[in-house]
Nucleic acid binder design. Structure first.
Lengths: 108, 108
DNA sequence: TTCTCATATGAAATTTGTTTCATATAAACA
DNA sequence: TGTTTATATGAAACAAATTTCATATGAGAA
């Protein structure tokens, strides 16, 4: 029954693989193997990340036969990302320092 | 001229010391030494974190004699933290898994 | 049942981030 | 100028997070 902190919550958005998972799920719910296909990398690694995201209720899961279907908590995720876009807007979308000036997938 | 990513942006909220700095600045702008007094730890460490926060425009700086006065980008920081509070609200404020159920300072 | 497929889990290996330490810079002042 | 104060910076030491690897679990099909 470990309490998760703010740090923990935000950490779920501060990693390329996890943002990839979130992006993948924007088109709708997916099973683990479908997510792996989309984001690439090891199944076990994706699984670890899914666990972390789920623990913070950033993702939801349901069982379906032997599959687990993950879906976005849109109510939290979308406003979160929009806030960042808005923040970037504040520097005219061409800030050299902040630099959040292109869609999620195009960044490294 | 390095472009900072979403990961980078969120990483600034996913660290205890940096959240401490943000909390300290909620009462108004402070100089580096005042921040150090409030959050504790090495001056150079605080300085590194300030640099990181500033690069993402989460903080602003202005010179004042030999001091540097840092201030919150409230427009971004407050909605960000409120969003998390709201997210927690979704589990009634007593979720065992998500656990973001008490003020910033009281968590570990 | 046994086999296969889908996913999870734990621990070791690796990578990345944080902290500390020593020192640099820059402003004010004697 | 030389000294003190405030802050920044780079690199090494240290800590934490991520990835991989090997294997476990669990559901459905043969």
């Amino acid at each position: 029954m470990k309490q998760i902190s703010y740090e923990n919550f935000f950490a779920n958005f501060s990693n390329k693989t996890r943002l990839g998972i979130l992006t993948a799920l924007m088109d709708g719910p997916l099973s683990v193997s479908e997510i792996v296909d989309k984001v690439g990398g090891e199944q076990s690694n994706v699984s670890h990340h899914l666990e972390s995201l789920r623990k913070c209720s950033i993702l939801n899961v349901k069982k379906e036969g032997k599959k687990r279907i993950y879906s976005l908590n849109k109510k939290t995720v979308y406003p979160m990302l929009e806030l960042v876009e808005k923040h970037v807007g504040g520097c005219g979308g061409s800030c050299e320092e902040c630099g959040l000036c292109s869609p999620v997938g195009e960044r490294k």
